[in-house]
């Protein structure tokens, strides 16, 4: 028996009553019996299928709740029950899930990227290039001979790579970007004048180009897009309806995660460049030399690694050294 206040259909007036849930009948304080089936219940309220409802005086009895729940609902109800053991289990499960999801996403990214046609990737690359070109790039001021030298080496490197159509190579001067090389999704590759000036030997520029070719061959930009949008999609669906977590907070976490991932892409590209340089008959130590020259000014301690898309200089040089030892 559940004792409480009864509301007739479409009425807000209360009548004292009892509900005999085993026999599915309501007994009013006047003594009248009304057969009634439960449609749903929540909190202390029971809603009947005819539009009437009953607010129980106390918490609804467990026996009643059990008969109304199916197996799944019963399982969830047990999960929701507060006990330290339960909470500990849930928190552990939560951490395990996040880790699994992270691993799955990393493995799923290359597979998903394979489904994206190369033509679309190139289109994205071109769009990106055009946008940055308008804002940050000026025509190159490097002498033509030097540029032609670099282009020859680049063609040579490309021949040994797995990239089918050779991505275009552009030279630009850029004050805002400084000494840098960029690989847009599917190409083109851009080298700045500042980079060429800093690396006085063209072979060192070639080493950087080998690194950029790796980004294109492995489709790292696309993988990055898939990982970031995948994590954001999952995160926003999970937390989207949850108040109290701001979107900025969420985006910051996802970005932090994406940065970590980008670091592993950089290391992979360094290793690839090392291989490619060897195949094309260059000294494999060029990659380390180029890095040394480019990152010369960055002291390792000052880098806030968590927020960086690139790993620390020492980490990259150590990894390259290990490769050189291996190949020797």
């Amino acid at each position: 028996m559940i004792r409480g206040k009864y509301f007739a259909p479409a009425s807000a007036v209360t009548i004292s009553a009892e509900y005999d849930w085993q026999n599915k009948q309501l007994i009013l304080s006047t003594g009248a019996y009304i057969p009634m089936c439960v449609e749903s219940f929540q909190g202390r309220q029971i809603f009947f299928d005819n539009g009437a409802s009953l607010v129980a005086d106390t918490v609804l009895p467990h026996e009643f709740i059990d008969t109304q729940h199916n197996k799944v609902q019963r399982g969830i109800a047990i999960m929701e029950l507060f006990s330290w053991r339960n909470i500990l289990f849930l928190v552990m499960a939560f951490i395990a899930l996040i880790l699994t999801l992270r691993i799955v996403l990393v493995y799923a990214a290359p597979i998903t990227v394979n489904l994206i046609p190369l033509s679309l990737e190139r289109e994205i690359g071109e769009l990106g290039y055009n946008r940055i070109n308008d804002m940050h790039f000026e025509p190159s001021r490097i002498e033509l001979d030097k540029r032609l030298d670099i282009i020859e080496m680049y063609k040579e490197l490309h021949r040994y790579s797995q990239v089918e159509t050779r991505p275009e190579l552009f030279f630009h001067s850029s004050e805002t970007i400084g000494a840098n090389a960029l690989a847009f999704p599917g190409g083109p590759i851009v080298v700045t004048d500042e980079l060429i000036q800093k690396l006085d030997k063209p072979e060192l520029v070639a080493a950087v180009l080998a690194h950029e070719l790796a980004h294109i061959e492995e489709r790292h930009s696309m993988q990055q897009i898939v990982i970031v949008s995948g994590s954001l999609a999952i995160a926003s669906v999970i937390f989207g309806a949850e108040e109290g977590i701001s979107e900025d907070f969420l985006a910051a976490i996802v970005n932090l995660y994406a940065f970590q991932h980008s670091q592993s892409f950089e290391l992979a590209s360094d290793a690839y460049a090392h291989q490619l340089l060897m195949k094309a008959g260059y000294s494999p130590s060029l990659m380390a030399e180029a890095l040394e020259a480019l990152l010369h000014e960055t002291s390792d301690k000052s880098e806030t690694l968590w927020f960086s898309t690139h790993p620390a200089k020492n980490e990259r040089l150590d990894a390259l050294e290990a490769l050189t030892l291996d190949s020797n």
Binding site: I76, M79, E80, F94
Partner: peptide
């Protein structure tokens, strides 16, 4: 917590 877990 259950909500979060089941959602994931």
């Amino acid at each position: 917590l259950s909500n979060l877990l089941l959602s994931i």
